[in-house]
Amino acid sequence: MSGAGENAIVAKGLNHWFGTGEARKQAIFDVNLSFRRGSLTVLMGPSGSGKTTFLTLIGCLRDVMDGSVRMLGHELNGATNATNEALRRRSGFIFQAHNLHESLSAIQNVMMGLQVHGRGLDKRQSREAAAHMLGLVGLADRVDYLPGNLSGGQKQRVAVARALVGNPEVVFADEPTAALDRTSGMNVVQMLKRLGAERGTTTIMVTHDGRILELADRIITLEDGHVVRESDGVP
């Protein structure tokens, strides 16, 4: 595992604004947080508090304007396209909306999460790895379905498989269980927790699900773009 330190991500003096001129509005205020490798952190807070904004900033999906974010040893503020792309390949993102590619089957969508690495897996190997991952999220019998023929929960599980298939070092998840029933939601979170233990995967997850809080190593609460509370385990 490359990248120095025992922290996967370190944010320092992070601010973020949306809009320009009169409409300019600050969404993140001087956030200083570190995320230990292998930990599971839950982000909480009311709607509009800046959870998604913060997650996309530290997840390398949004340019850092002010302050510093170090992800896996690389500074994101002013990072080049190449650095961004390389870091995105080392992480997995699970979105609020599943965002599957509609014209690709479940397994093809998952394979896209592997192919991005260009890791010299041949087609059969990557198919096998993708099928295995789909099995883990309970979709072994749906591998060749197009997203249009899957339920919301099934689609979300495909998205989870896609994010995890490439063995990411960091997983960002924005309300990943919102579209899932209780059991599969818990399954997904337990899987993420297990990955953390087995592979040292760092997970940062936005959720309101009370039962997930029990599994968290750390809970951070945002309000109006400020970190208002930080606690270990159940608050």
Binding site: R88, F93, N99, L100, G113, V116
Partner: peptide
Amino acid sequence: LREYATFKAMGYGH
């Protein structure tokens, strides 16, 4: 665009 953005988020380049 949304689908492409997802690919971009996964680390695919231009």
